[in-house]
Nucleic acid binder design. Structure first.
Lengths: 89, 89
DNA sequence: ATAATAAGTAAAATATATTTGACATTTAGT
DNA sequence: ACTAAATGTCAAATATATTTTACTTATTAT
């Protein structure tokens, strides 16, 4: 049994930061729903506002623990904010 | 027929240990359900087997893109494998 | 007993997430 | 006009995820 590599996008994304990654609009709207600024969320989860800004703008990919912390602050789950539902493409 | 060494009682408590090293047993079982080795998953998502091993054993936290890739390989979602459902903050 | 695969672990090197500090733009409010 | 808060972005420094190489143990099968 062989397994094909489906994760080429990771290294591609890491090399072309800001080019290919799309914005996380779910995060932006979830934050807006809580009426929190980027700095508010950043302080709540213990990172800088630049980090939250970069995540929203798709400049790099956060760690799973940071994603979980953000979700909890915003009252959402990982699937709500970070799961890409692009089943059709 | 050989007998394996049963050397610890830790396994009995793995599910509900709140310690530093909380293993990701959901990942382990999802991988077992697909009959894939750590190296199989590693190759499929484009990382080394040490990375998969470290994630399963809770040694460090992967990036969200790697988590998504792992989930897709195993036919699971982020919530299935990486969302911790302990509502006690 | 030997070989082969899977798994656990570790030290050093590399890649990249995150911080720090700074500057610019927009928006809303006096 | 000014002020402040929120956002966007950038370069350099730091922290840490990930790789590479290697050694070890466990398991299964020959």
């Amino acid at each position: 049994m062989t397994f094909s590599k489906i994760n080429d996008t990771i290294h591609l994304n890491q090399q072309n930061r800001g080019d290919i990654l799309s914005k996380n609009l779910k995060l932006k709207s979830a934050r807006a729903a809580k009426d929190m600024s980027q700095k508010n969320v950043a302080d709540a989860v213990g990172v800088t506002r630049q980090t939250i800004n970069a995540i929203e703008n798709g400049d790099y990919n956060p760690s799973i623990n940071l994603c979980i912390a953000i979700c909890k602050v915003l009252g959402k789950t990982l699937n709500d904010i970070f799961w890409e539902d692009d089943t059709s493409d």
